[in-house]
């Protein structure tokens, strides 16, 4: 019997060696308990998020946690492919807006959203408003997260919010990154703003629950 509570702790403590050892143990029988292991990793990521909120962990730890989560998925993937018991996930769009090429913040948020159970459509960096609208329409997406680091990104965020509203799409929009502020959020008509990935995750979870 594998000790999944221990895996939660190990993931939460960002102990790479111990995590790999446990996951390789999980895969020894072909991965019959891979789903449980994945759930434990996700719980571990929640712990990482809480420790971030408490001030124990900081941004570098989240980047490292993202690395560990990617590794965990790589190890477990052979056993997880084809599994359908996870149930429907809330789909959402995430991207860095037009004229901004920064992706580290976006990638942190993506790995934490995925760990929280979202099906994240990552459109990448320097994404034009039309692209966001097109994908949101095509895939009937209700949550959009826009990221940026440059002050210039605020203009692109506003254009994207305007384009989504003009297309009549019923989307909740959250903006995130260094230049955003409550004032900027209000001025562009977005629904929420965040400086921390944890807030983004919490807000998106609330929206997903409401939907």
């Amino acid at each position: 019997m594998l000790d999944f509570d221990n895996l939660v702790d190990v993931m939460g403590d960002l102990d790479e060696d111990a995590m790999i050892e446990i996951l390789e143990g999980v895969m020894e029988d072909g991965g019959s308990e891979a789903e449980k292991a994945m759930e434990a990793c996700q719980k571990g990521m929640e712990k990482v998020g809480s420790l971030f909120e408490e001030g124990e962990y900081f941004v570098g730890d989240l980047i490292y946690a993202g690395e560990l989560m990617t590794q965990a998925v790589e190890i477990l993937t052979p056993a997880l492919v084809g599994s359908e018991s996870a149930g429907p996930k809330t789909k959402m769009i995430l991207c860095t807006v037009k004229d901004d090429l920064h992706d580290i913040g976006k990638n942190i948020v993506r790995s934490m959203l995925e760990a929280a159970g979202f099906d994240v459509v990552d459109l990448g960096i320097d994404v034009a408003p039309e692209k966001v609208v097109e994908v949101a329409k095509e895939q009937n997406i209700k949550i959009v997260a826009l990221s940026g680091v440059l002050t210039l990104a605020l203009d692109s965020m506003k254009e994207t919010v305007d384009a989504i509203r003009a297309a009549g799409l019923d989307c909740k929009i959250i903006i995130g990154g260094a230049p955003v502020s409550p004032e900027a959020c209000a001025a562009m008509g977005a629904d929420e703003w965040a400086h921390s990935p944890q807030k983004t995750i919490n807000v998106c979870k609330e929206w997903a629950a409401e939907a």
């Binding site: 960002l14 790479e16 941004v59 570098g60 730890d61 980047i63 490292y64 690395e67 580290i104």
Partner: peptide, 11 residues
């Protein structure tokens, strides 16, 4: 860079 530096602080 940010990514390698963050990971190196741990690894």
């Amino acid at each position: 860079g940010l990514q390698q530096f963050s990971v190196a602080m741990r690894r």
